[in-house]
Amino acid sequence: MPVRRGHVAPQNTFLDTIIRKFEGQSRKFIIANARVENCAVIYCNDGFCELCGYSRAEVMQRPCTCDFLHGPRTQRRAAAQIAQALLGAEERKVEIAFYRKDGSCFLCLVDVVPVKNEDGAVIMFILNFEVVMEKDMVGSPAHDTNHRGPPTSWLAPGRAKTFRLKLPALLALTARESSVRSGGAGGAGAPGAVVVDVDLTPAAPSSESLALDEVTAMDNHVAGLGPAEERRALVGPGSPPRSAPGQLPSPRAHSLNPDASGSSCSLARTRSRESCASVRRASSADDIEAMRAGVLPPPPRHASTGAMHPLRSGLLNSTSDSDLVRYRTISKIPQITLNFVDLKGDPFLASPTSDREIIAPKIKERTHNVTEKVTQVLSLGADVLPEYKLQAPRIHRWTILHYSPFKAVWDWLILLLVIYTAVFTPYSAAFLLKETEEGPPATECGYACQPLAVVDLIVDIMFIVDILINFRTTYVNANEEVVSHPGRIAVHYFKGWFLIDMVAAIPFDLLI
């Protein structure tokens, strides 16, 4: 008679799926529990143990900040960024110097990925580790590398530091407007667009060049630039800015003055950032001319202004700041037409079709709590990747769950009947059967004279019903998954307890 339990259901295979997918890609990662103190490590794979030199037993239950890997060259700011990422709910990448158990130093890129439950609360953290440099290539500990984003994938490793954006290309926007319009339909740009040429040739750093990471940081200074100062900065030398009595002219307006920039070969870094931020506020060169004239017309309804409409929906549905990093990277690809469009465009503009998908598509409701890094690593669709929660398995109709209350009560009843059979069957065979043979035949009273025979008949009927119930009862397979398919249940029961239950259900007393 089957006594099969499996009270692990309803099970959740999400954690096993993450481990299996990460292991298949030869990654070095740990999984931490966000619900406990210090976000203790609950799993670390073999790749991480080989990377740091510690065994799994030495890593388990330690804080996922990996303070046991810190050393003299470990930056405090990087460690603080990892700790801050564990307090938030967004994906974050941090470069930090770690030390192995043998004392060797290596520069590592740590990717902190939160995993949320159905309520939107962070319950786990996945920390992925990628070695960037070994100890002989690690720089000085005073050099802070965590304020910069990861290198873009479309640049060669040897040319990542030679990417320079020439400031004269930004200063000569109005001069290039006529050349853009003359391109017409034969050019790649839309009317009114501004073409910015980027020099990728390796050259020595000069005062006129600005690194790509500095251009990325310009967006942080746009908020500090007032509207009046932006307007004066875009007017140009024809209309000098008016300053109040006793007030000095704005240095932001002076930063885009061609006369002032041409007199000296070098520009201050602050002026460069502010000038680029001011130019980015204009949607095209037409807006710059309109600002000089004193009238700013409404933005025209053409394809170039609607190019950012799908980007707005993608940004609203993005799951991490990696989408913004990807957008900034692609927006700086050289030799393309940049349409400086305000994100607050007309909502009635139709979304044009684009061959290049900048932001990841909208994630469906079932995966809105899973970050983009987890979705990318697992390579699963929205119909396959579940949320991290207890999910009731989908069972067929008329199927009994093996952990249901009805099955528990039924098993206790069958257990009592088995005990009765084990006690009274030998007793009936030894004593009652002998008395029946010696006594007179009682054929007239039937079952009324033999109450134990009636009980034995009921017990046999219950055993037959138990066999039928076992054909529709779920079970737990070797992978700790609840199986509810009727065919698989029948095959599993035939290979197991079916023969024993059938022999126990045969009414031998009635056959004798």
Rank of each mutant, 00 (worst) to 15 (best):
R62P: 01
F29T: 01
N317F: 09
F68Q: 01
F22A: 13
F129L: 05
A156M: 06
I82H: 01
I42F: 01
C64M: 05
A188I: 06
R73C: 08
P300N: 14
P168F: 03
Q11K: 09
S331K: 14
Y99E: 01
E37Q: 07
S255K: 15
G236C: 04
R92G: 13
L15R: 01
T152N: 03
R159I: 06
R280I: 10
F348S: 07
R27I: 05
S255V: 15
D136Y: 05
P227I: 09
V131Y: 06
G184R: 11
D355S: 10
C39D: 04
L171E: 12
V110C: 11
T353M: 07
G345T: 14
V122E: 06
L86W: 01
F68W: 10
F125C: 06
L165N: 10
V370P: 07
A290S: 05
S261I: 09
P240D: 13
L256M: 05
A79T: 07
S278Y: 09
D197R: 01
A277M: 12
R292F: 03
N146R: 13
A83V: 07
A79W: 01
P245Q: 05
D219I: 02
Y327P: 14
P352S: 10
A79G: 05
L316W: 14
V196F: 01
K93Y: 07
V59M: 06
L385V: 07
K161N: 14
R92V: 11
L349G: 12
I359G: 14
I19S: 02
T74M: 01
G47R: 08
Y54G: 01
T353Y: 05
R281L: 07
T371M: 07
L248S: 11
V384I: 07
T145Y: 15
N146E: 10
P63I: 01
R366I: 12
I18N: 01
F348E: 07
G192S: 05
P141H: 06
V36S: 15
I18F: 06
A217W: 08
N146Q: 15
R62V: 07
L165E: 13
Q61S: 12
A260Y: 14
E37I: 06
V138K: 10
G189R: 14
L200Q: 15
R5T: 09
L380E: 04
M124I: 06
R56L: 01
A185P: 13
A57K: 12
V94L: 01
A156Q: 15
D119A: 06
P227C: 01
S243Q: 07
P63K: 11
R326T: 08
S207V: 10
N33G: 06
T201H: 14
T353F: 08
K135P: 07
P245H: 04
N339R: 02
L378Q: 04
A290I: 06
S182K: 09
S250A: 15
Q81M: 12
F340T: 14
R20K: 07
T319P: 14
K373G: 04
M133K: 14
H302K: 14
N128A: 15
M137G: 15
S261W: 05
D111Y: 06
M291R: 15
G139F: 12
R4A: 13
V198A: 05
D144M: 07
E177C: 05
N117S: 07
A290P: 12
I358N: 14
S179W: 01
L212A: 12
P297E: 08
C52V: 13
A97L: 14
G53S: 01
S206F: 06
G224C: 05
R328C: 07
P251L: 09
V198I: 12
E91C: 13
S263Y: 09
D346F: 14
I336T: 15
T353L: 11
A121D: 11
S243Y: 15
T65E: 07
S272Y: 04
A160Y: 11
D67M: 09
V377P: 04
R301C: 12
P227A: 05
T74A: 01
G88W: 13
A175R: 15
V3K: 07
S320L: 07
G6W: 08
P72Q: 05
S351K: 12
N38M: 06
L87F: 15
Q75H: 07
T319Y: 08
V279D: 14
S284V: 12
N317G: 11
L127P: 01
S209Y: 15
S318D: 11
R159F: 13
G183L: 09
A79I: 13
C66N: 01
L267M: 07
S178G: 08
R281Y: 15
S209M: 05
S209R: 04
A228H: 12
G238W: 15
L51M: 14
P168V: 01
F348A: 14
P334V: 01
R301W: 11
E50H: 06
L349E: 11
S153A: 07
D102C: 12
D16M: 07
V384A: 04
P205K: 04
L171H: 09
R5K: 13
A34N: 12
L343W: 12
Q25H: 11
G186F: 06
R76K: 15
A172G: 15
G192K: 11
P2Q: 06
A244N: 14
A260D: 15
K21R: 07
P202C: 01
I123G: 07
G246F: 07
R27Y: 09
K116M: 13
R271M: 06
T329P: 15
A85L: 01
D287Q: 12
T305V: 07
E214R: 08
F163E: 15
Q335L: 04
S320G: 13
L87C: 15
R326W: 05
G381R: 03
A40S: 14
T319V: 07
R76C: 15
S322G: 12
A79S: 07
R76H: 15
R271S: 10
K364C: 04
R5Y: 13
K28P: 13
A40P: 15
Y327M: 08
A156D: 07
S318W: 15
V36Y: 15
E177M: 06
T174I: 12
L385E: 03
C66R: 01
G184M: 11
S313R: 11
G262I: 06
R281T: 15
R356F: 12
L225N: 12
R76V: 13
C108L: 01
E118D: 11
S283Q: 11
S55E: 06
F348R: 14
G53L: 05
A350D: 09
Y99M: 01
C52P: 01
Y54Q: 01
G103Q: 07
V198T: 06
A303R: 06
L87D: 13
A175F: 01
F14Q: 12
V112T: 09
L155F: 06
E365C: 12
S304H: 12
A190K: 08
D111L: 04
K332S: 13
N33H: 07
E130K: 05
H221A: 07
R252Y: 04
L311D: 14
V198Q: 11
A204N: 15
C49K: 03
P150E: 12
A282Y: 15
S304P: 15
S264C: 11
A9H: 15
E177K: 09
E230Q: 10
M137E: 13
S318E: 13
L15W: 12
G88Q: 08
G262Q: 13
L349T: 12
S178F: 06
G246D: 04
K161M: 03
I123K: 10
M60S: 01
G47I: 01
A121Q: 12
A382Y: 04
A244P: 11
V94S: 04
C39V: 07
V8G: 14
P299W: 05
G183D: 11
T375R: 04
E357D: 10
I31R: 01
S322D: 14
V115R: 02
E372T: 10
T201F: 05
T74P: 01
V295N: 07
D67N: 09
T13R: 13
T74L: 01
P334E: 15
A121V: 09
A97C: 11
